[in-house]
Design a protein around this nucleic acid. Structure first.
Lengths: 221, 221
DNA sequence: GTCTATAGGGGGATAGAC
DNA sequence: GTCTATCCCCCTATAGAC
């Protein structure tokens, strides 16, 4: 915000504008012309600063994913310290994973809410770009699956992966489709209340993880 | 399949092609040229049969959502009959909701797998078209929230809506991002096994619904 | 019902002046 | 670093012959 940076941050304005428009209208539906207009920059500036639309998309993610994943790992460290020698607490681990993403919405200064929506959609978008971005989740994925395995030592890898996957689905849905809940619940639910949302999701997922294992019991068709 | 319909089903071929390509590459990224080429039809045929790309998109959904939602209601009826006077069983209700969508993948003759993926993405896509399509879910939503309320009479509407929302998120994620699970689990999980997937998700969600209620307990930041 | 041809509008990327 | 002008592509939708 200082005057010394004012003239140099076209790049930042482009990132902000792209983040906002990608989240609001989708990546394919957003043109470089929309972005540069929103950023009050020139059409050629995207190619000058980033090289291509795809590179801009990657940059939008690179700017924020790192901090989110770092916070996840720090919170996981805290869970493990609190547990001493024993396994960490299940709810603590799940909250460590879920909270940093769901709290993006509250990020002051920045348009974290837009990024949260975009990131929630990332999992299901058909873009080939996904694969590159998912590499940035590898460490988080490994650390958390290890921690969950210590929480639930008798659970097979298969079931553990499935339940983590369901948890990610609930989280992603909350990040990108909260408006639907607000609409269908007719005001009963408020996805803008991050603390409550985190608490509800953590409790739901922890109970799901703790369920007795189904060995393809009873009913099949 | 009969010869008498062979010459008239350009319309069907267009729907199949659109369903496939929308699922695979996204709606915005799929052009009418792609669709008509895939369907071995003429570029003008989409506008002749449907009027516009948007109308084609709606037709793709209209063709399959009806049957899925009808099956959900029938299965819910079955749960309620089985329960007699009392409340239906929680797992039965959840499976009634989840199974018809997850079993789309097995739909023979048709490309149900593609539609499943597309439908899973519908919740989070930025298209304005969503609102029109969601109207078709209204009855299902009401019947299932009522049934869940009878299963869990002490649960507030707020918590019930949240947990149904989390369940929908897990389901949608499974429908549209199963490939990610297959990749990250390195073969431990097989999202193509519909029976197992349904069982796992039902058990997970039922446990989540059954969790003790959190009154913003303990930790907040 | 099906096709060709085309209108008319954006799209991403780049060259080259400043 | 920033801007204008422009190349060349693909898009949706429609007109009109068959």
């Amino acid at each position: 915000m200082s005057d010394s940076t004012r003239h140099t941050d076209t790049r930042e304005r482009l990132l902000d504008a792209a983040e906002y428009l990608f989240a609001q209208r989708g990546v394919d539906a957003t043109s470089l012309r929309h972005i540069t207009a929103e950023a009050a920059a020139n059409l050629a500036s995207v190619n000058y600063h980033f090289g291509s639309k795809e590179a801009l998309f990657r940059a939008v993610f690179a700017r924020r994913i790192g901090p989110v994943n770092q916070e996840r790992l720090e919170r996981l460290d805290a869970c493990e310290r609190a547990a001493g020698q024993g396994p960490p607490e299940l709810e603590c681990v799940l909250e460590a994973f879920v909270a940093p993403a769901l709290r993006l919405r509250l990020d002051p200064a920045h348009g974290g809410e837009h990024f949260m929506c975009l990131m929630g959609r990332l999992y299901t978008e058909p873009h080939g770009l996904k694969t590159v971005i998912f590499e940035q989740f590898r460490e988080v994925f490994q650390r958390f699956t290890e921690a969950l395995h210590r929480c639930l030592p008798d659970m097979s890898r298969e079931v553990l992966f499935w339940r983590l996957f369901f948890t990610v689905g609930s989280m992603a849905h909350t990040m990108s489709a909260g408006a639907i809940l607000e609409h269908f619940s007719q005001g009963h639910c408020d996805p803008a209340d991050a603390d409550k949302t985190i608490r509800y999701l953590t409790v739901f997922a922890a109970a799901g993880f703790g369920a007795a294992l189904p060995e393809s019991s009873g009913e099949s068709t």
